[in-house]
């Protein structure tokens, strides 16, 4: 791609990653969540693939695979964490510890340290979606077309 696209990608890449992390981190307070934030962060990877070519990211396939597996395992493990009550029981909510602040009923300004296992699950799913969509875009760009790489 041209130098204009490459420069704008250099500027927008960290902004897109940070905004994806913001959407994931505030998933239990504002609209959004793991899937949406992961898709936003994966769009940064897609932007790099478009601007710099797939060869620039072809060494990162192992990292993406590890992130995808880590996210899936962390999500299932957080589900097993509540096995004393039921599968996916939210044991951390309202416990006073990590992410354990109580939330009153009704409109309130929102507290990041609430919702129990939900933020952790959001991060797990976010990494999973980031790695999954990034790997799909990268594989399409690497092996999809023979003539327009």
């Amino acid at each position: 791609m041209t130098v204009v696209v490459r420069t704008i990608t250099r500027i927008l890449f960290p902004i897109a990653l940070v905004f994806g992390g913001y959407v994931i981190m505030h998933g239990h307070l504002t609209p959004g969540g793991g899937f949406q934030g992961g898709a936003v962060a994966a769009s940064a990877l897609a932007m790099v693939v478009v601007a710099f070519g797939a060869k620039s990211l072809s060494g990162k396939k192992g990292l993406l695979s590890a992130l995808e597996s880590l996210g899936g395992v962390a999500f299932a493990a957080l589900g097993f964490l509540g096995l004393g009550v039921t599968f996916f029981a939210n044991v951390l909510a309202g416990s006073g510890g990590l992410f354990g602040n109580p939330v009153p009923y009704g409109p309130n300004p929102g507290d990041l340290n609430t919702a129990g296992t939900l933020p952790l699950m959001n991060w797990a799913v976010g990494f999973k979606v980031l790695a999954g969509l990034g790997a799909v875009v990268l594989l399409f760009a690497l092996f999809g077309g023979e003539h327009d790489r």
Partner: peptide
């Protein structure tokens, strides 16, 4: 809000009440 302690009811449903659904989605 009182049970899951999440302001976002959609996230509360997706990740807590219907966690199986999200596991299937993943």
């Amino acid at each position: 809000q009182p049970e899951v302690a999440a302001n976002n009811a959609v996230t509360a449903i997706v990740f807590d009440y219907r966690g199986y659904d999200t596991l299937g989605e993943a």
